[in-house]
């Protein structure tokens, strides 16, 4: 029974080398962001492409936090992203459950229409959206962004949620109803806990999409106090120069909520929660 193949050490080294190469490739831009953020202004051009700056400063960060409107942008972005993620997931979960479990008239048409909305480039509908938002008097309001982001993300999020619901055997709900649950109780006690990975994935997807969205934010928001973070970044570009250090520092700070959010939901993203439910 000594048929277990001896692993070639060269293969192991190769595997880790490939992984290391990929990691460096993927993380280098992030490193560069941080590096420039920490480099004193005077050294940014003089030291050029040195891997480590000869001197490190946190002044870019303090300037960004205390002397610019960054905190306001940050708060706006947070509100818009959380709002969009919450409402999108709420609607998408309801619609996805209906698509997954019920047969109703017009189901195919609704699904087809939702797919159609995904086919148009966003640029095409920017003007009509602007007109609608302007007529509603919602220009320069965060509400308009939440509504627009929610509307644009619902189709994809619905399909995502539907596939998660499809993955939960219908027998589980039937069993719960035989065990004395109403349909809603079955949903709450059996289906919902099993959908947490799906909800987590949808929340994360919409949050990051909204967090980094620039086009609509740029279009619908022109007042400084309502700017979201991606629009606010542009304020570091002035007519004659670009303040790279502060811009990068702001970029680093902007990464924090995304990271925190994913750390928070990653335990719900773990797959295989439904394993063991049915045969196997």
């Amino acid at each position: 029974m000594s048929a277990v193949k001896k692993t070639n050490p060269a293969l192991i080294v190769g595997k880790y080398a490939a992984l290391a190469f990929y990691l460096i490739f993927a993380l280098f831009p992030l490193y560069w962001l941080l590096k420039i953020g920490l480099t004193p202004d005077a050294l940014i051009y003089s030291e050029g492409t040195r891997l480590f700056p000869s001197e490190i400063t946190f002044s870019n960060f303090t300037t960004v936090i205390f002397q610019t409107d960054f905190v306001a942008y940050f708060r706006n972005s947070l509100m818009v992203s959380l709002g969009a993620a919450f409402f999108t997931t709420l609607f998408a979960a309801g619609a996805g459950y209906a698509f997954s479990r019920f047969v109703f008239a017009g189901k195919r048409i609704i699904i087809a229409l939702m797919l159609v909305t995904q086919m148009f480039p966003l640029l095409m509908i920017i003007a009509p959206i602007y007109k609608v938002v302007a007529d509603l008097g919602l220009l320069n309001s965060l509400t308009s962004l939440v509504v627009v982001y929610t509307a644009f993300n619902i189709p994809f999020a619905t399909f995502l949620m539907q596939s998660f619901f499809d993955g939960i055997p219908k027998d589980l709900e039937d069993a719960a109803m035989m065990d004395g649950c109403s349909r809603f109780q079955a949903l709450r006690k059996v289906v919902f806990p099993l959908t947490l990975p799906g909800l987590g994935a949808t929340l994360g997807f919409v949050f990051t999409a909204a967090w980094s969205e620039l086009l609509f934010a740029l279009m619908l928001i022109s007042r400084n106090d309502a700017m979201t973070f991606p629009v606010g970044l542009l304020t570091f570009v002035s007519k004659f120069s670009v303040d790279w250090g502060q811009m990068m520092a702001a970029g680093v700070l902007a990464l924090i909520p995304s990271c925190l959010f994913f750390i928070f939901i990653q335990r719900y993203l773990v797959q295989g929660l439904t394993s063991g439910a049915v045969k196997g």
Binding site: P169, D174, M178, T274, S275, A277
Partner: peptide, 28 residues
């Protein structure tokens, strides 16, 4: 409704609640 018929059913797929342990499954 099923819940008011006082009938128990054993499914072909077993349909155990995957997030509950055996005791909670049985006592659900």
């Amino acid at each position: 409704r099923p819940r008011d018929r006082d009938i128990a059913m054993v499914f072909q797929s077993y349909a155990l609640y995957p997030h509950m342990d055996v005791a909670r499954n049985m006592g659900f």
